[in-house]
Amino acid sequence: MKAAGAMVLIELENVGKRYFLHHKRQLVAERLASRMRRDRVSFWALRNVDLRIRAGESIGIIGPNGAGKSTLLSIAVGVSEPTEGTARREGRVAALLELGSGFHPDLTGRENVHLNAALLGYSRAETRDRLDPIIDFAGIPDFIDEPLRTYSTGMIARLGFSVAIHLEPDVLVLDEVLAVGDREFQQKCVERIAEFRRQGKTLLFVSHAPGAVETLCQRAVWLEMGRVRRDGPAAEVVAEYQNHAATVSASA
């Protein structure tokens, strides 16, 4: 791999994540009883996943619904703890899994930017310095002091993306960003992500659209049923994934 000597920013070692299905067992007594009997229904959303993300890499995660992409991201970012194995992080990981997560509808755009930056670990001064560029890039000057509930979905996505990219994290984590926003804004995002990468920063990107992974990432990881099926250069993995998808739908 190109960035072989660079520092490892995110390292997942033999990571597994098991979820329990609760069904109707909601009463305390029943829940405790089933825990004692160890007959809880569970499934592994991820199993035996090894992933090393080095500084400067751009990695796309692809795979069908339910393959464990979101679980993988939330463990990589640290929002969720693995059931087995270890997850380590170095540097400033922009730990927000969804653009605009943490935005509140009753706060104005500006107030939401402040709140989001604070939650992501930035100081008041750092946030203040970035406020103008964030508002500029989002391109919604007339709405920035209006409550968020008056925004369209696209506008929220613009603001969310703008916050995430301007905070200049060491690792930028994006989950399905390009799905929202108009063409012009998508183009703007792609350019901004490319610039971010030229600064030697790291990108971790999840998408259902293999095309987007191919444009934005050098490396791709194909997840299937909670396991890594293929990990390699984006173009190869994406091509293989698309072939596979085509065969599956042809034989179905």
Partner: peptide
């Protein structure tokens, strides 16, 4: 590299939000 998060700023932001 990673600055220690400013918990006071997070606290005051959350209080301000509520």
């Amino acid at each position: 590299m990673a600055a220690a998060p400013d918990h006071l700023y997070i606290l005051s932001s959350l209080i301000g939000k509520d």
